[in-house]
Design a protein around this nucleic acid. Sequence first.
DNA 1: CCGTGATTTGCACAGAGTGCAAAGTTGCAC
DNA 2: GTGCAACTTTGCACTCTGTGCAAATCACGG
Lengths: 204, 204
Amino acid sequence: MSETAAPSRRELNKTANRDAIAAAALELLRSRGMGEFTVDDIAATAGVSRRTFFNYFSSAEAAIASFTQKYLDSVIEQLLRRPSDEPLLESAQHALTAVGSPRDLALLAETYALTQNHPQLSRYQLQAWDECSTSIIAAATNRLGKVDDELYLHALVGSIIASGRAAMEVWFQQRGPDTSETSLAILRQLLFDAVGHLRSGFNP
Amino acid sequence: MSETAAPSRRELNKTANRDAIAAAALELLRSRGMGEFTVDDIAATAGVSRRTFFNYFSSAEAAIASFTQKYLDSVIEQLLRRPSDEPLLESAQHALTAVGSPRDLALLAETYALTQNHPQLSRYQLQAWDECSTSIIAAATNRLGKVDDELYLHALVGSIIASGRAAMEVWFQQRGPDTSETSLAILRQLLFDAVGHLRSGFNP
DNA sequence: CCGTGATTTGCACAGAGTGCAAAGTTGCAC
DNA sequence: GTGCAACTTTGCACTCTGTGCAAATCACGG
């Protein structure tokens, strides 16, 4: 069915460049910490010009947040694979915890941990989660046709995303920057349980 | 009981300055639109130096987002006034729609409307809502003592805030930049209904 | 091999944000 | 009211950000 299609040389170079830049940003984040490096540093590490950096990302924070976006994109992908008659909350519960890409979850967790106390980066992460909401709403609207109750859908999807973020926050409080396999398993469980609470209407 | 206490001259000057700067930012936002003015413009309009602007706000966006923060602060204030044995969802429903400060809600709506398509400002607004979550969680933890289920509390409060944001979004889709009394009444109703959906566990 | 369109790069420039020290205010004790 | 201590505003200098523009470079099809 849907092949990934044309990996032309140009396309390949483009994603390779993008990945190299994001990887360079992550490397500097790990080694120096947020705020301790500049866009020039990232560009130099990635082996591109400063100007090219800005062709791909609008800021250093955006480059780091791309890892969060990547995880959330894979969540949406999983979500679209669920049977379309399955209740949204159930689909979401599975999509958030699906291990379609273990590395994505690990990077989500790592960048989340390295983000603490860096307002501007936090804002970019928030935006990534919010855009995920928007995508899910669009997909649901697409699938169900014009919904009768916009408010219901927005509040529901927003709550799902909020539950996901709650799981991240609680995980980090409990585990700190530990991103071992064990720790990530706990994170997955928290993601599952958070949406579980939502599914049960927050009735204990 | 808790008086607002010492309005010393210094304190007064400080809040007056802060208000003047925020008002100047809003005025420029209204007259020129986001991205069409600089921090120097705001400082000049407010009658302070550029450097003083940065003593109060870290960016133009932060100055605009202060109106959202103000509304959310008043929500928290209302929330703390509710009887402490009332279920959190019920308290939240009332706090979000309480007209403790009609002007705050109007400014929330207006700045929300003027924010569309301005990523950096959107991020600041998101952050304001997120910090509100954090405050509510802290308050609840404070009131109930160390909670047994952190995840439950985080997911619940996050969902409340998400419902509030959902109401804002739906309101704006329906009403655009209309901030008349009638329109604001609709917004209040949407806020009430959004949390209502959450209260009923999203069961139609 | 060459032309065409996309991509990268260098350069220039306006503006953001911050440290620092001088100048100006406010509060308080005498 | 004088004067000193603490706080606030301001100007200045400096680094870094983000973007427009045009030249150079690259990918691809003929």
